[in-house]
Amino acid sequence: MLLKDKLENKNIILASQSPRRKELLAGLGLEFSTLSLDIDESFDRNQFKREKITEYLSAKKAKAYTEIKLNDIIITSDTTVWVDDESLEKASNREEAYEMLRKLSGKTHSVYTSVTIRSTEKEVTFSDETQVTFALLSDEEIYYYIDTYKPYDKAGAYGVQEWIGYIGVDNMNGSYFNVMGLPTHKLYKELIRF
C-alpha cells in the first residue's frame, strides 16, 4: 500500500514554516497543512550532544501542539550542524554566520535532523546523520554567500541546495534531503509503520 493511501483519512500537519521542509514533505506525495509553533528552543549544552539535541527539540515541538484531534498526525523536526564538538544552530547576524562558515570551511561536519510523528495514540522520534565535507572557502566566497542568500534561518548558516552547496560541498556521506532539513527516506518508512 502506498503511503498516500494509508494516510488518506488522516489530517497531516507539518509544524514548520520552513519552505524546504514543506517542499520535501510535498515530495512524498502527501497532502498536509502547516502551522507555526512558538517554542523556546534553548537546551542544556552539557546534557545534550549531537542528535540528542535535535531529538529533544523535535519532541518538545510536538508536545507544544496541544490541540491534537483524533485524526491528526503532527510532524515536527529539528536540525543542527555538529563540528569540533560544538552545535551550530541558526546565525542571528552576519558575523555569526561568517564565524560558522569559517568553522565549516575545509572540514567534515555532521548534520543531524530529528523528526517526531505524533497522534493522539502514540509518538515516535527518530534521527538521521549526514556527513558533509566542505572545501576551503575564501572570506570573499563566505561574505558573498551570506550577503546574497541571507542564510539566517538555517542550521550552520548554510543551505546545501544554494550556491554555497554548489561550490563548497566536496563530499557527502548520507542523505542530501537530511541536510536540507528532512530525512524523507526515513520519514516515509516511519509513516508507513505509524
Rank of each mutant, 00 (worst) to 15 (best):
L136R: 13
N171H: 12
L70H: 14
E141H: 01
D153F: 10
T148P: 00
L7Y: 12
I192M: 15
V83K: 04
D153Y: 12
F194P: 02
D128I: 05
N11I: 01
P183G: 07
Y152I: 03
K61T: 04
R118Y: 02
K49S: 13
I74L: 15
V132E: 05
T80Y: 00
L137A: 03
H185K: 14
S114H: 07
F194A: 04
E51H: 13
V179H: 11
S36P: 00
D153W: 08
E123C: 09
R50Y: 07
V160M: 13
A135V: 03
N9Q: 05
R50G: 05
L182S: 06
L104D: 10
E51D: 15
Y56T: 04
M180I: 06
K49T: 07
M172Q: 07
D170W: 00
S77K: 01
D40G: 04
D128V: 03
S16P: 04
A155W: 00
T108R: 12
N171Y: 11
L24A: 09
G29K: 12
N93Q: 11
W163A: 13
E41D: 09
L2Y: 15
N11C: 08
Y149S: 12
K6H: 14
L30S: 13
R102I: 11
K22A: 10
E51R: 07
E31A: 14
P151E: 06
K22N: 08
V179K: 10
I53S: 03
Y158W: 07
S127Y: 10
L88V: 03
V179N: 09
N9V: 00
I167T: 13
S114D: 07
Y176H: 13
S92M: 08
N178F: 06
T120L: 12
G27A: 06
D44N: 15
S127C: 14
I164T: 05
T54R: 06
T113Y: 02
F194K: 00
K61M: 03
G181Y: 05
N178H: 06
L30T: 10
V124T: 13
L14G: 07
I142V: 14
N178T: 14
I68F: 04
S42C: 05
F194C: 04
K103G: 05
S16Y: 02
A59N: 12
S138V: 03
N71M: 02
E41I: 00
F134W: 01
Y65F: 15
E99S: 14
G156Y: 12
E55T: 15
S110Y: 04
T54S: 15
Y145E: 03
Y112F: 15
L30F: 13
K22M: 13
I164S: 06
A97D: 07
A155P: 01
H109N: 14
K189I: 08
L136I: 12
L24W: 09
S127V: 10
E140C: 01
K122L: 01
F134V: 01
V115M: 11
Y166K: 14
